[in-house]
């Protein structure tokens, strides 16, 4: 479960994330949607305890990301925008290392490695060096790394970027299956992805949440595309007004 309240992150004068609040319950796949540069990655980095928030709070898996970061780290799986792979390790060696530092019990580790490789469709490259992998494989090894310790909360930053259409379908299915017993936060700027995979959507623009809604409630009235365009441009109108004043 994720509970974000008034989260802010500023670099000097510039507010990258400004007063973001939303929630994600267990079993939900939340699409975190926004144009490039909207503050998606910064928010996600705060939720993953990589960056400390400037103000506001975020509770991830029941713990505060700032004060109980250690507890949060044990309970999250995180795939950053660029998969954090060690080029000189084979996929298997890499997953073993991640399993070790994420605290997977030693006896269970080999079995877990095989399982995640299977789930993320990377078994065929298990003995290849990470630096020789194509973008699509790198992305999926990154995903395997994020779920190896069965985290309560899974945070994925643009998990389908760089994948071919077949891989995208496979990964979307995988994410859907993860959503059954985990909380998944999925950042993306691909609209159809959200309507296909997620059951909740949070739209962010210029560091602010402009809309938070269950996808089911949304579809009745307008398409996601309409809503997205409206909420993003509305925000821009507000900004323009502020500039005039």
């Amino acid at each position: 479960m994720i509970e974000v309240k008034n989260l802010c992150k500023s670099y000097g004068e510039y507010a990258a994330v400004n007063d973001v609040s939303f929630t994600a319950q267990k079993g939900q796949i939340v699409g975190f949607l926004g144009p490039n540069g909207a503050g998606k990655t910064t928010t996600i980095r705060m939720l993953s305890t990589y960056l400390p928030p400037s103000s506001g709070t975020a509770i991830v898996a029941g713990f505060d990301v700032l004060r109980e970061a250690d507890q949060v780290r044990k309970r999250i799986g995180y795939l950053p925008e660029n998969p954090p792979l060690y080029g000189e390790m084979t996929v298997r060696e890499y997953l073993k290392f991640v399993g070790e530092i994420k605290g997977v019990p030693r006896a269970k580790l080999p079995e877990k490695i095989d399982e995640v490789m299977e789930r993320c469709f990377v078994s065929d490259v298990r003995n290849k060096l990470c630096q020789h992998l194509s973008r699509g494989y790198r992305q999926r090894v990154g995903l395997a790394q994020a779920i190896i310790h069965e985290p309560e909360v899974i945070i994925l930053d643009e998990p389908t970027s760089g994948l071919d259409p077949k891989q995208i379908i496979e990964i979307r299915q995988l994410i859907k299956s993860l959503g059954k017993d985990h909380t998944v936060l999925l950042s993306t700027h691909i609209l159809p992805e959200v309507s296909m995979v997620c059951n909740k959507v949070v739209i962010i623009s210029r560091g602010r949440v402009v809309m938070e809604s269950m996808l089911a409630d949304l579809a009745r009235e307008k398409s996601l595309e309409q809503v997205f365009l409206e909420s993003v441009s509305r925000e821009e109108v507000v900004d323009a007004a502020a500039c005039v004043n």
Partner: peptide, 8 residues
């Protein structure tokens, strides 16, 4: 980023 978001 991986190391800093792991329980290490």
């Amino acid at each position: 980023e991986l190391l800093l978001t792991s329980p290490v």
